[in-house]
Simulated scan of single mutants.
Amino acid sequence: MIQEKNSYSLVFLSIYIYILEPQTHNTKNEFEYKELEKATENFSQSRLIGKGSHGCVYKGILEEGKNIVAIKKQSLGLQKIHDNSKLENEVSILSSLPENSFIVNFLGTSHHDSSSKNETFLIMEYLPNGTLYQMLHAKNNIIPNWPKRAQIAIQVAKAIQFLHQTKPNSIVHRDIKSANILFDSNWNAKLADLGLALRMKNDDQDESPSYSYSYNSVTRPAGTIGYLDPDYTKPSKLSTKNDVFSFGVLLFEIMSSRKAIDVSKSPVSIVDWATKLIKEGQSLEICDKRMHVPWYMEATIKNMLSIATRCVSPKKITRPTIEEIVMEMENVIIDTTNNVTKTCKVTE
């Protein structure tokens, strides 16, 4: 028992040290299209590692296997209508950012012009351990323990904080969800897919975005059902609090391993289900039943569920900022670490 408590104390300490890692500046390159063709075996289906409404992601092996990257190609649907706006928007956002430990690293772009189409490709760092969605919902996966879930939550919060604190204007991700959280070789979580991201006009959270795209292109409200802020109904409603709402949904998902929307359950919405249990004083019933909740994790879990509840408040003004969320999470981790350490000393 002492050994188990000590190990969790070390886990929490490592979580706190990791979130203080400094940032470094990113370097963006222009890659040759022929190099990408070779790296993906001409964009072979065997190299396809991800697929969404905006694009497909391929595993690329460069320099005779010495460098593995992820290559994002525009979806066939957008190619057919010659809509490059989302990919160009993602390039614009990513190329303006310094490298950050909690955001998937942007390496560069490639362009291919032909008689029929002009294509842009994004080259990103390759993260080998799948998505948070897979970790929580895929069958036969190793179930994450509670310190790991807390670590993931803080890492995602730090990623959102980085975007919201970007100068001169905040960036709103607009698609925070478990499928957009990827794991590196050390199982650290990183936020990916900034295809829907928008930069605010100024630091006023209720101002409209600065981009002059038409309503039917990049600036119209967008996101994923289940995570999407119900208050975000028109471009002028864009706010960093939209991301906060989505993060609250994600927190419930991390703690429960229940999908954001599950039509096989009642209620179908994780928000409706979780907030009802919390109002009834049964917050720990939200926790993933496959993983026992040890006593020293109860305070941390209850705190994160409390944060999630405030994040999904129908009233945008009552939701916390991501800075407040990060500070509160860090403080509860430090308190939990200290309590476990004191208990270990008493029982030794």
Rank of each mutant, 00 (worst) to 15 (best):
A189V: 09
Q45R: 14
Q45D: 11
T321G: 15
V218T: 11
L94M: 09
P144L: 04
I17N: 14
A308W: 00
D204A: 04
G130A: 03
F245V: 02
P320F: 09
P221V: 11
E298I: 09
S313Q: 10
Y215E: 13
N188I: 01
A197S: 03
V312L: 01
Y33L: 11
I93Q: 03
S44Y: 14
R149Y: 01
S214E: 12
D203G: 08
N216V: 08
L191S: 05
I176K: 02
Y232F: 12
Q134R: 07
P320R: 09
N118W: 15
S101I: 01
A260D: 00
S110P: 00
A192D: 12
I325V: 09
E99Y: 14
Y296S: 05
P294E: 11
K201Y: 07
S9M: 07
K34Q: 06
K59I: 05
C311A: 07
T275A: 05
D288M: 11
H137K: 03
S212I: 10
S246C: 04
L20Y: 15
P230K: 08
Y126N: 00
C56P: 04
K86N: 09
V172L: 10
I325R: 11
L97R: 06
E41H: 14
K315L: 06
S217M: 15
I68N: 04
I68C: 08
M291F: 12
A159S: 08
V346H: 14
E125W: 06
F12I: 03
Q161K: 09
F102Q: 00
A260S: 06
N242M: 10
L13K: 14
T240A: 14
K316E: 09
E280G: 00
T109N: 00
K345R: 14
I103D: 06
A274Q: 03
N188T: 04
E32Q: 08
L132N: 03
P320E: 07
K241F: 10
I142C: 07
E32P: 06
V91I: 05
L127W: 04
R199I: 05
L20Q: 06
I317F: 14
E324S: 03
I307C: 09
K315M: 05
I61N: 13
N105F: 03
P168W: 10
S101D: 08
K177Y: 04
N84W: 00
L198F: 09
Q45P: 12
G223L: 04
Y296C: 05
G55W: 02
G60W: 04
T40P: 06
S7G: 10
F183V: 01
Q45Y: 14
N67A: 08
Q282H: 14
P22C: 12
K66C: 13
H112V: 04
